[in-house]
């Protein structure tokens, strides 16, 4: 099997199919720990992980924190409201100051796309894991989506995956596209033209659909994206009700997909906007399974960036 020799995990674009398979395989093994009475192994004892979140997050930060603790690492959370960033410190200075405290891994979320590459260059001895950067990538979400789909179908190749919503602002969509197309899935994108980036069809084995119907038709998997009201201007959609009518998932248009199709959402959900409550809580929804898999996937990521000598 492949070996994992990267210092950082910043984007699924940087990983090969074999490396992603390795991460998923390790994640499957990590799941066993999460079902024990004693949910802890001593693997990363003595390692220090700093969770540096410049953007709000509950799910991802908690998930990374639990993942680190279950591997016995010491995890420290830094949030913008109580960090020096509010006092005007630059990311470069923050990096140098954190480096002086000798962390082994920094898990960062930042509003600027690509900021992790900058951080990585400033911190040679420390692994950087991307927990979401601007509109670029969110690799742990991409991997946990892949694991959740693999659990359901036993494979990723040959599946039709529809991704619906605000593609332009979605780092989840970009990681999903990178990961899923490398694994052999066919990805169909749908969303209002104002939320579809130019050149989306060049992201890989991707088809840009004019309507939601076209994307969802006969799909094995439907991934609904959150409307990111904090990231977009007011002009991208007239109002939530109109968006919901054309690009919301409800029991009626879900019938277009395959009968056993699975529904996913990276959360947090705007109930009644991108998905009706009936679908969110329905039998085809795998949303909580995604959250559960998130801890195992993040344990695998933390484990593999700590591995041995680097290339």
């Amino acid at each position: 099997m492949a070996e994992f020799k990267h210092k950082d995990i910043i984007a699924l674009r940087d990983l090969t199919k074999e490396e992603m398979e390795l991460l998923l395989s390790t994640a499957e093994s990590m799941r066993e720990i999460n079902s024990r009475d004693i949910k802890k192994v001593p693997t990363l004892r003595g390692k220090t992980i700093i969770n540096l979140f410049y953007e709000a997050s509950t799910r991802t930060r908690t998930s990374f924190e639990i993942a680190g603790k279950r591997l016995s690492a010491d995890t420290v959370n830094i949030a913008p409201s109580n960090s020096s960033a509010t006092k005007g410190e630059t990311l470069a200075d923050t990096a140098l100051n954190l480096l002086a405290m000798k962390p082994d891994i920094i898990v960062m979320r930042h509003a600027v796309s690509g900021s992790h590459y900058f951080l990585s260059a400033k911190m040679p001895g420390c692994s950087i894991i991307n927990a979401g950067d601007g509109t670029h990538e969110h690799p742990s979400q991409g991997l946990l989506d892949m694991l959740t789909i693999k659990d359901r179908f036993g494979r990723l190749d040959g599946l039709k995956v529809a991704i619906v919503g605000d593609i332009t602002h979605s780092r989840v969509a970009r990681s999903d596209i990178q990961g899923l197309t490398k694994m052999g899935s066919s990805v169909y994108l749908a969303g209002p033209p104002t939320m579809m980036p130019p050149g989306a069809e060049r992201l890989g084995n991707v088809t840009v659909c004019a309507t939601m119907r076209e994307a969802v038709q006969d799909a094995d998997v439907v991934i609904m994206l959150r409307i990111q009201q904090e990231r977009q201007g007011k002009t991208l959609m007239p109002n939530a009700r109109e968006y919901s009518r054309y690009f919301g998932l409800n029991p009626l248009n879900l019938k277009l997909a395959k009968p056993d199709a699975m529904v996913m959402h990276p959360g947090p959900i705007n109930r009644g906007v991108e998905m009706s409550s009936y679908v969110v809580d329905g039998s085809q929804s795998h949303i909580l399974k995604q959250v559960e898999n998130g801890v195992a996937v993040r344990m695998a990521m933390l484990y593999h960036v700590c591995g041995g000598e680097l290339e």
Binding site: S29, L44, Y303
Partner: peptide, 18 residues
């Protein structure tokens, strides 16, 4: 995951299933 040579040399290979 229980090896004692973790600090310097974690293996790159996948973790097997318990």
């Amino acid at each position: 995951l229980y090896r004692d040579d973790v600090s310097g040399q974690l293996p790159h290979q996948a973790v097997g299933k318990t």
